[in-house]
Design a protein around this nucleic acid. Structure first.
Lengths: 195, 195
DNA sequence: CTTTTATCTGAACGTTTGTTCAGTTACGGT
DNA sequence: ACCGTAACTGAACAAACGTTCAGATAAAAG
């Protein structure tokens, strides 16, 4: 056999990325074989190499894509007036964006050690960009006197870490709606940074 | 060759556990081979099986040991008077305990998916015990009127997630001392849960 | 000193790994 | 209807995987 019916790079390509994302998140990069990805896609292992030069590039591409999406999405959010409202907007944005992509988030935070040094540096820069955006809000709030924060860098990381925690337990069919989650977290974030 | 000079289970045993802990944390369970652990210990791969029935048991033993240590250490801390002071004590304890064992913490939170279902259940119960201890403090504070929390379960997870974040960036030779870190985080935790 | 036992080696096992590639077939354009 | 090429198969490769075990040697016990 050879080329299969209905085969099309516009279909197989995304399918490979989706499958790899899901499996990497579930089992971890190192624990997933190329053959397993291929099997889930419905193709032989060799076919994967029409879409990625190797396994490492596949991981890197997924992570980079996620970070780029994250930054672009946050860029697209119209900035509210005042640091307090900007932070509230960010809190909601972060919770919702991450809740929609649990697998990508998981990978972006857990598979950094499986990147080559070169690829790691790229992802790290993108993450730093995101963090800097948040720190900008906090700094602005401190200058305006609406926030009281002893160290904006740490506060940035603390806020993000707290919000990331949502992904470890939130399930859409669970006890709380996303609106409620957002409200509860905003209450805590707001108080944590306020004067 | 066979038994080597100076060989002793009291030395090799702990050495294997330390090495496995470090390598699992650095590269991930699936990415570390038994041969790599053995090489770092200075022994042949077969020798490892005098100390663990298999690789999975080694991981489980490390995780269970860590969780048991964590619970015992927190149990040993004398409970302060009042929910506010108890929470402050917890914040300091959690930051310091985890800072002293970055590798074990990393594994306990990242390698859960590599446990068999049976082993996973055990670790999950231990973690739940720890979380329940924190939630107890928060509930008490709410009853006493010193805390205002809309959902103590979520607040528990949020506080722990925030504190766990320290491990992702803290380095002992860094900008801030551990005392400063503790102070900064306590400020945020305290405000986040206060009325 | 002799015997027993704990500890480790070194080779071997069957599987699985990432990756390559010649060959084959379906699709897209003309 | 035909052709060029994009897409895929199936087999193959060397290397690495977890695990087992008979045999060898150092340590501990008598």
């Amino acid at each position: 056999m050879a080329r299969t019916q209905g085969s099309h790079s516009g279909i197989t390509g995304p399918k490979i990325r989706e499958t790899a994302l899901r499996l990497f998140a579930q089992q971890g990069y190192a624990a997933v074989s190329m053959r397993q990805i291929a099997k889930d896609v419905g193709v032989q292992a060799g076919a994967l190499y029409n879409y990625t030069p190797d396994k490492q590039s596949l991981l890197f591409s997924l992570m980079k894509g996620h970070m780029a999406e994250l930054l672009a999405a946050w860029d697209a959010v119209p900035p509210a007036a005042g640091a307090m409202e900007r932070l509230r907007t960010f809190t909601g944005f972060h919770i919702r964006f991450h809740q929609e992509r649990p697998d990508a988030v998981f990978i972006a935070y857990m598979e950094l050690r499986n990147l080559t040094a070169e690829n790691f540096a790229v992802i790290e820069t993108l993450r730093r960009d995101y963090e800097n955006g948040v720190e900008g809000i906090l700094k602005e709030g401190v200058e305006q006197g609406v926030f009281r924060i002893s160290d904006t860098k740490i506060a940035t990381l603390a806020v993000i870490a707290m919000l990331n925690g949502v992904n470890t337990w939130y399930r859409s069919e669970g006890r709380l709606s996303l609106d409620e989650v957002e409200r509860v977290y905003w209450d805590m974030v707001q108080k944590a940074v306020s004067a």
